[in-house]
């Protein structure tokens, strides 16, 4: 075997990776640097390193203004994202199981309907959705928002789960039935654990989409006690004056939970994406 040597090619690649890393790092640096500056420093030397950090931006952002506080918005974001993701996993996996394992004309039709949901942009239906939620008195409520997200992202969840279940050997389920387990027990004890890789995908994709979503949350939640992080951050953007140190402090705070989640769960996540079902 040829001994691997450090060549100019390797050096070039490393240099390229370093440049890419710097490009990705710059926005984070800017956000962190500005968030640690006083309101006056923000304009005088925006990109300089914050030599004497000023946490007033964080303090103000956290306590918020009259309508909302960042702490409260953080809780709202977590509740709405968490509950929606749970709903998407539970209902999506069950629905997909039925669609994949009970072949009939009806299930094909339903599957196509879900696919259409993936294709059609939901913004087209935003007005009727808004009207419907208001009639149901679910406007500006956790429940309404969660219901909305479960509905909006269910096609994605069903699509991912159905594809995975179709590729899953039936033997495990059949073995479970012969072993005396009911359909529900078979699903809970055998099928659902085997879906772990795709459940990971559904959780990550839908959590990111919901956590970062601004448009829907602005329309359905702005001004309410239930407003979420993106909406709260937006409220710091004033009509005449934008408090950039507060805005970036809020941005940093909103990134932290996702970052923490990733650090804690990264090994699980990567294993989930990489691994299939191994007998």
């Amino acid at each position: 075997m040829r001994r691997s040597a450090y060549t100019w090619r390797t050096f070039g690649l490393e240099l390229l990776l370093l440049v890419v890393a710097v490009v990705f790092f710059v926005p984070f640096y800017v956000a962190a640097a500005i968030s640690l500056k006083s309101a006056s420093d923000v304009y005088s030397k925006p990109l300089a390193f914050p030599s004497n950090p000023d946490f007033s931006g964080y303090r103000t952002a956290w306590h918020g203004n009259a309508s909302s506080s960042l702490g409260h918005s953080l809780v709202n974001s977590i509740v709405i994202t968490g509950a929606s993701v749970v709903g998407l996993v539970v209902i999506g996996s069950l629905a997909a199981y039925a669609l994949a394992r009970r072949p009939s004309r009806m299930s094909t039709l339903l599957y196509v309907l879900f696919l259409l949901g993936l294709i059609v942009p939901f913004q087209l239906g935003i007005v009727p959705l808004y009207v419907a939620l208001r009639h149901l008195h679910l406007n500006q409520q956790y429940g309404g928002m969660i219901l909305l997200y479960i509905g909006l992202l269910m096609p994605l969840s069903v699509f991912l789960y159905t594809g995975f279940i179709r590729a899953l050997p039936r033997d495990y389920e059949e073995a479970s039935y012969v072993d005396g387990a009911s359909s529900l027990r078979t699903f809970l004890r055998i099928v659902f654990p085997l879906l772990r890789p795709v459940t990971g995908t559904v959780i990550v994709l839908s959590a990111i989409l919901i956590w970062n979503d601004f448009f829907t949350q602005l329309i359905f939640l702005s001004g309410s006690r239930q407003q979420t992080l993106p909406v709260a951050i937006y409220s710091f953007v004033g009509e005449y004056v934008s408090q950039w140190n507060q805005i970036f402090a809020a941005v940093i705070i909103s990134i932290l939970p996702i970052l923490a989640f990733y650090v804690v769960a990264q090994r699980q996540l990567i294993r989930g994406f990489a691994g299939g079902v191994k007998g």
Partner: peptide, 15 residues
């Protein structure tokens, strides 16, 4: 039915 079955690929629950 109270029967037991051994499958060709064993169908052991992998998890």
């Amino acid at each position: 039915r109270d029967v037991a079955m051994v499958f060709q690929n064993y169908a052991l629950y992998p998890h």
